[in-house]
Amino acid sequence: MQAFVKTLTGKTITLEVEPSDTIENVKAKIQDKEGIPPDQQRLIFAGKQLEDGRTLSDYNIQKESTLHLVLR
């Protein structure tokens, strides 16, 4: 499924993900596309910070959801 990641600069990245993907996995995909190390990434969805060990389905993130990427 497709999900979108919006950065603070307003850029939107499109990712191909599965509901079973972990947040860690998603961060690795963002690193592949953008070169941002996962340890600098914080992903926010519905106002919550997403934890590495959880999956997209844990957070009820469905296709075409938009996550927000904040860098630390």
Rank of each mutant, 00 (worst) to 15 (best):
M1N: 03
M1A: 03
M1Q: 04
M1W: 12
M1P: 02
M1T: 04
M1K: 03
Q2N: 11
Q2R: 14
Q2M: 14
A3N: 03
A3R: 02
A3G: 02
A3D: 01
A3K: 01
A3E: 02
F4L: 07
V5H: 01
K6V: 15
K6W: 08
K6L: 13
T7I: 11
T7Y: 13
T7G: 06
T7R: 06
L8R: 13
L8D: 13
L8F: 13
L8Y: 14
L8S: 15
T9F: 12
T9D: 14
T9E: 12
T9G: 13
G10S: 04
G10E: 03
G10Q: 04
K11H: 11
T12C: 10
T12K: 07
T12D: 04
T12Q: 07
I13H: 03
I13V: 06
T14G: 05
T14I: 14
T14H: 08
L15M: 05
L15W: 00
L15E: 00
L15Q: 00
E16D: 11
V17R: 00
E18W: 13
E18D: 12
P19L: 11
P19A: 10
P19H: 07
P19N: 06
S20C: 08
D21W: 10
D21K: 01
D21E: 09
D21Q: 04
T22F: 08
T22P: 05
T22N: 04
T22H: 04
I23Y: 01
I23C: 02
I23H: 01
I23S: 02
I23R: 00
E24P: 02
N25L: 13
N25H: 11
N25A: 14
N25C: 09
V26E: 00
V26K: 00
V26L: 11
K27M: 07
K27H: 02
K27C: 01
K27L: 04
A28G: 09
A28K: 14
A28C: 08
K29F: 06
K29L: 09
I30R: 01
I30D: 00
I30G: 00
I30Y: 02
Q31M: 13
Q31N: 10
Q31S: 11
D32T: 11
D32P: 02
D32W: 10
K33H: 09
K33A: 12
K33C: 07
E34W: 15
E34P: 01
E34D: 06
E34V: 15
E34L: 15
G35C: 04
G35W: 03
G35R: 06
I36K: 02
I36M: 05
I36A: 03
P37V: 06
P37H: 12
P38H: 11
P38V: 15
P38C: 08
P38W: 12
D39Y: 12
D39R: 10
Q40Y: 08
Q40F: 09
Q40V: 11
R42P: 01
R42D: 11
R42C: 13
R42W: 12
R42G: 07
L43K: 00
L43T: 00
L43S: 00
L43F: 03
I44D: 05
I44N: 05
F45K: 03
F45I: 04
F45V: 04
A46R: 14
A46Y: 09
A46S: 10
A46T: 05
A46V: 06
A46G: 12
G47D: 07
G47P: 01
G47M: 04
K48F: 10
K48A: 10
K48T: 13
K48G: 06
K48V: 14
Q49H: 12
L50S: 01
L50M: 09
E51S: 08
E51G: 04
D52L: 05
D52Y: 04
G53H: 15
G53A: 10
G53S: 11
R54I: 05
R54L: 12
R54D: 05
R54E: 05
R54M: 13
R54N: 10
R54T: 07
T55M: 09
T55D: 03
T55W: 03
L56M: 05
L56A: 02
L56R: 00
L56E: 00
S57C: 05
S57T: 07
S57H: 10
D58R: 02
D58A: 06
D58Y: 15
D58T: 04
D58G: 04
N60D: 10
N60W: 04
N60F: 07
I61F: 10
I61N: 02
I61G: 02
I61V: 09
I61Q: 03
Q62M: 12
Q62P: 12
K63M: 11
K63N: 15
K63F: 08
K63P: 15
E64Y: 14
E64C: 10
E64D: 15
E64N: 15
E64K: 07
E64F: 13
S65I: 09
S65P: 07
S65E: 10
T66C: 06
T66A: 06
T66L: 11
T66E: 09
T66G: 04
T66P: 06
T66R: 06
H68G: 04
H68L: 15
H68M: 13
L69S: 01
V70A: 09
V70N: 05
L71V: 11
L71C: 06
L71M: 09
R72L: 15
R72N: 13
R72I: 15
